[in-house]
Each structure stands twice: as C-alpha cells, then as structure tokens.
C-alpha cells in the first residue's frame, strides 16, 4: 500500500535538491536494488505523522527531480523523537554520567528536597523502596545538615549513615531516582547504567527505574557495555505490564559507518534463548 504524505518542504537538506516523497506501509514493496540513506532533518520537519502507529519500521522513498531514487528507513518512534528536537519545544533533559555526576549539577539533598516538597509521602516511599533492593535493612531516609552541607542519610535500626557510605550501588540508585524526578516530563540520559551494581540486582534496579520513569513521565536513554545489564532490562520489562523498552545496538560497519539496530521483545527473547552476542 502506498500513500503520499503532506509535504511542506521537498528539499534534501544534504544536497539542496528537490525531492518527491512517497510513503510505504511495507518494506517489501521496495525492490532489491534500492539502497538506503539516512534522513536529514529538513525532511523530518516536513512530514505529517498523524495516525502513524508507533514502534513500526517504515520506509520513505525519495525521488529526486533528476530521476535518482533513494529510500530511507527508520523507526517511527525515533523519528518522532527527532521531530520533537526540531520543534524546539523546551523540555527537561538530565544527564547522569558514568562517574555518578548529575547534570544540571544539583546536590542529591537538594533534588530530594524538591521531590519531598512536591509529594512527601509518595516520593519518600519511592526512594526508600528503591534503595531496599540494595540495602534491605533500610528503615527510612532523612536529610541532615552537617556544617555547610546537607547530606541524605539512611536509617538502619537506631543508626544514621550517609547514603554514599552504604555502597556505590545505593548511591547510584539514589542519583538515578532523584534524576528521574528532576527530569519530570522530559528525558534522562544515563551513561554506563550498570556502574556500581552487582549483577544479581540489575533486574530489580531496572524495575525501580522503570516504575519511577513511568510515574514521572520520563523517557530514559541509558548506555551500557554489559550483556548482563541488557538481559536484565529485557527480563525486567518482560515482567512488567508493558514492554516499554527498546535495545538499540550500535555497530561499526565494514564501511566505517556506525549504524543502529533496534531489538523488539520477541527478537531480544530469542537472542537470550539462543545465547547470541547482542553487544555492538
């Protein structure tokens, strides 16, 4: 099936040439000799995506005015994300570096305080429950002012201990949950998400992160080099009500180009069962 899209601009941003754009429901409508090229941003801004289903690969076919044909493929969900960027709508982006530093740079105590002001019961419970994955004895958390610093402490029995003294994993989960709260209705970028965690807790870490992300309406982009982390994410999201997770694998091609592949749930499950290497 083929239908034309409403196009405001038909200029290839890379070459400046005029193009005609066609839309294909099915990749198999393309002939074998057609090759693929990446879309450029001016195209994305011009396409009307009303009614297009998410999470489906689609093909756009470009016919240059000089007769040359080019096809491009991409996931609609990625495309819409790109369009959000183009739209220049301001939205929240928070970054958690592999070293554990959060940008914009705000102290954990300050982030936690902001969350408590928003909803003290829900957000306190959320953080305590998340941290209990790593420290089951944790009763509660509180902020203590020590000298010039405000520091989040955990209470275990009748003892108070700074969270950063409870281990790297506790500190990392704290940062992530607080960063998700900070990124409300926006995007959180986490570099090397596995850092600081024992492999046995990774699945539970994903579960609490996923829950917090849904609660705060945050989309998370996390990077990893760890197969255990990828598999744990797949397992965690498979057990949730919705599999709102995609693994995007980056490979450096023979040509030197880096390309992305997106694993859906079924393909990921098969990769796990067949014991395939899925790291790029």
């Amino acid at each position: 099936m083929k239908k034309h899209l409403t196009i405001d601009s038909c200029i290839d941003g890379a070459t400046g040439r005029e193009v005609e754009i066609s839309y294909y429901e099915n990749i198999n409508d393309l002939s074998d000799d057609e090759h693929f090229e990446r879309l450029t941003k001016p195209f994305l801004a011009a396409i009307d995506f009303d009614g297009v289903e998410l999470n489906q690969w689609r093909i756009l076919k470009f016919l240059y005015s000089d007769g040359k044909k080019i096809s491009a493929g991409f996931a609609i969900e990625l495309l819409i994300f790109s369009m959000v960027n183009i739209d220049i709508e301001p939205f929240n982006i928070v970054f958690v570096a592999s070293s554990g530093i959060t940008f914009p740079k705000v102290s954990n105590a300050e982030l936690y305080s902001a969350l408590l002001l928003e909803d003290i019961t829900a957000n306190q419970t959320r953080l305590v429950e998340a941290l209990r994955i790593l420290e089951p004895r944790l009763d509660s958390i509180t902020i203590l002012t020590l000298g010039d610093s405000n520091v989040i402490h955990g209470q275990i029995g009748n003892q108070l201990m700074p969270l950063n003294a409870m281990g790297e994993g506790v500190e990392r989960v704290t940062e992530m949950i607080l960063a998700i709260g900070k990124a409300q209705n926006g995007i959180l970028l986490i570099d090397e998400i596995e850092n600081g965690f024992h492999y046995s807790v990774l699945e539970d870490v994903w579960k609490v992160i996923a829950k917090a992300a849904r609660d705060f309406n945050v989309q998370i982009f996390a990077t990893t080099h760890s197969l255990e982390t990828i598999r744990a994410a797949h397992q965690a999201f498979s057990e949730s009500d919705t599999y709102d997770f995609r693994y995007h694998r980056l490979d450096r091609r023979k040509s030197g180009q880096i390309t992305a592949s997106s694993y859906d749930q079924e393909t990921m499950q098969a990769a796990v069962e067949m014991d395939f290497e899925i790291r790029g």
């Binding site: 694998r249 490979d251 450096r252 091609r253 023979k254 390309t259 592949s261 997106s262 694993y263 079924e266 393909t267 098969a270 990769a271 067949m274 395939f276 290497e277 899925i278 790029g280």
Partner: peptide, 22 residues
C-alpha cells in the same frame, strides 16, 4: 535455528547483528 518455528527469530537476530551481517 532450533526448530522450524524459530527460523524467523534466528533470521531477525541475524539482521539485527550488523557486525555478523557485514
């Protein structure tokens, strides 16, 4: 590929593994 019903899953993984595909 572990049975005819899993052929499509094997092939899906093959195309997602760009390093192997190359």
């Amino acid at each position: 590929y572990k049975g005819k019903d899993r052929l499509r899953l094997f092939l899906a993984n093959l195309v997602e593994d760009s390093t192997s595909f190359d």
